[in-house]
Computed example of a mutant assay.
Amino acid sequence: MRLTAEQIASFHEDGFLVLQDWFTPDEVDLLRTETYHEFGNDQPGRILEKNGAVRTVFAAHKSNDVFSRLTRLQKMAEPAAQLLGDEVYVHQFKINAKLGLDGDQWEWHQDYLYWLKEDAMPTPNVLSAVVFLNTVDDFNGPLLLIPGSQKMGTIDLDVEKKYQQLDVAESWKPTLTADLKYKISKRTLIRALENSRIVAAKGTPGFVVFFHGNTLHASAGNLSPVDRLSVFISYNTVANALQPIANPRPTFISERDFTPIAALPDDALLAPRNGHSSPQREQLASLAG
């Protein structure tokens, strides 16, 4: 599924693009079921809130066939390649829980700053595609974005001293918590809003937001009793592959296999699973290479 010229222009102007009804109810139901299944898996990529609730699960696409196919659907990978102008691979995959009354905030930040400083990603020609699996309203912590903020460029920030003292093996953890490692200051936020505004991405289950790596974004805590589940797929261009560094973050956070995606048809998400043979399954296997 290709984006129109108007949609591409809107993304480059605002730094994000909201697409309603991008996934069907059946697809959303499947993704939601698999999401709760992943929440129950105790593994290194599962990050908890301070109260013990699940906050984020990383890299489920490496072990879960449904999420693997999600990253390769034409309606996800093809728009990413259109917007970035090159072949893409998955740099990072995460499921954000934002559970009812338990989901904490995400402070204002730019994703690319983390990927530059922590992963040695050369340029901000990167984006995230977010699939929302519940209705998102004013009360359950909608994704907040500032239109045009990507035009400010990468906002360089220093790391607080408490993070500088962490052991190398633990230094990646503050990039994932409610108390983020690189915080946008109040002064910077005011500057970003001088000629813009804060927009809340809201919609019904199955809507998607594509946003640029330098777009300022945040979300408040979930003050409703309803979970707000979202799947983040961060697509990077093959030409923007990470540079070698000492002590890289775990690959479940920062992928270092830069093989470009072989796209699957949009109906592949609901394809037969569990090893059952079918002509459609064989076709998908050939498309995946």
Rank of each mutant, 00 (worst) to 15 (best):
R2G: 14
T4W: 06
S10Y: 01
H12L: 07
F16L: 01
L19Y: 00
E27L: 12
V28P: 09
V28F: 11
E34L: 00
F39M: 10
D42T: 15
Q43L: 10
K50L: 15
F58K: 01
A59F: 13
V66Y: 07
R69H: 08
P79D: 05
A80P: 05
L83T: 04
H91I: 04
K94L: 15
N96E: 08
G103C: 09
H109V: 09
L116N: 11
P122S: 09
N125K: 12
V126Q: 10
L127D: 02
V131L: 10
G141V: 09
P142W: 11
T154Q: 03
K161M: 08
E170C: 02
W172T: 07
P174F: 07
T177R: 01
A178C: 01
I184K: 00
R197W: 15
V199Y: 12
V199A: 10
A201R: 01
T204Q: 15
H212I: 01
T215S: 05
A220N: 08
S224F: 05
L229K: 06
L229A: 09
I233M: 14
I245K: 07
R249T: 07
P250Y: 10
R256F: 03
F258R: 03
I261G: 08
I261M: 09
L264V: 10
A268S: 13
A271N: 04
S277H: 09
Q280W: 13
R281K: 05
S286V: 12
G289A: 13
